[in-house]
Amino acid sequence: MTTVLQVNNLQVTYYTDSGRARALDGVNLTLNSGEKLGLVGESGSGKSTMALAMMRMIKLPGRIEGGQVIVDGNDLMALSEEEMLNARLSEITYIPQGAMNSLNPVMRIGAQMVDAIKAHDSKSSKSAIEERCMEALESVDLGRNVFRMFAHELSGGMKQRVCIAIGILLKPSVIIADEPTSALDVVTQRQVMETIDRVQKDIGCAVILIGHDMGLMCQFVDKVAVMYAGRLAEVSTVRQMFSDPKHPYAQALISSLPSLENKGVFHGIPGLAPSLLRLPSGCTFHPRCPHVMEVCKTTVPALRTVPGGAQVACHLYPEKA
């Protein structure tokens, strides 16, 4: 097991008319090769910002304020713009949320794939490049004929698989998939996830799956990271997360899950996600937390390892383990 991705103290701020919004506030994360990490949280918790920041694709008014994203020993944040262009797709790749909107409607699928390879490799022959594209399409269970098709000729699940095929063309070390299945129905969702699973094993990369579907996380990932208001609340293995969540927010997330046993029982999480412009003091979850203490209102809890191996940012778990 080698470490392929290390995120150190990543910070992103959006400068808006109504003030500064801290979208990412010092996030630390490590990922080994072949590992699958799920990044969960409510909308606005910073999941997508995290993905975009790792790709250095944050646009104004957002800015990456600091931190490192180390992929295979290289800090992406230290690269020049041109080197970063090269690193995208070959080192780290991003599968966007709405697949149907991310393909060019007036270009054939094949042309878009060839473009992606040519941007990184100007030496290979045309036929070699096309062959690579066809192989990538086959590896995501699409026919070779898809190469000549347009996006509108494909169904949602097929478009999503085309995006995966483009993502793996250059065999990256890290794949970030941002809610790859949120617009798809369950059967297609399973096909897409099985595809990601298989290509991940084929090329031995690490996967970060972003989403809010805990059921999907449970079935797919090895590790779960729960985000809340731009910080990590808890990072633990999927087994620990589902059997013994530590952070009160993670506990609420887990108990809000529907199952076959408790029919008709709904547990929402009380309160609303905080606005990033007016974050509560101390622990940002304290206004919604059932175990709130005095210290939570003043001091930001650090992410630390608790007995059992999970990393939790909560004052309920004492400093000394």
């Binding site: 097929m158 369950v186 399973r190 099985e194 996380m217 449970c218 079935q219 797919f220 589902f242 899950l257």
Partner: peptide, 20 residues
């Protein structure tokens, strides 16, 4: 095909036969 949030349940035991 429902991804149940239950570690003891295996996802997708029956194979999806044909692609759409």
């Amino acid at each position: 095909s429902i991804p149940w949030p239950d570690l003891n349940r295996r996802w997708g035991e029956t194979e999806i036969k044909a692609r759409e």
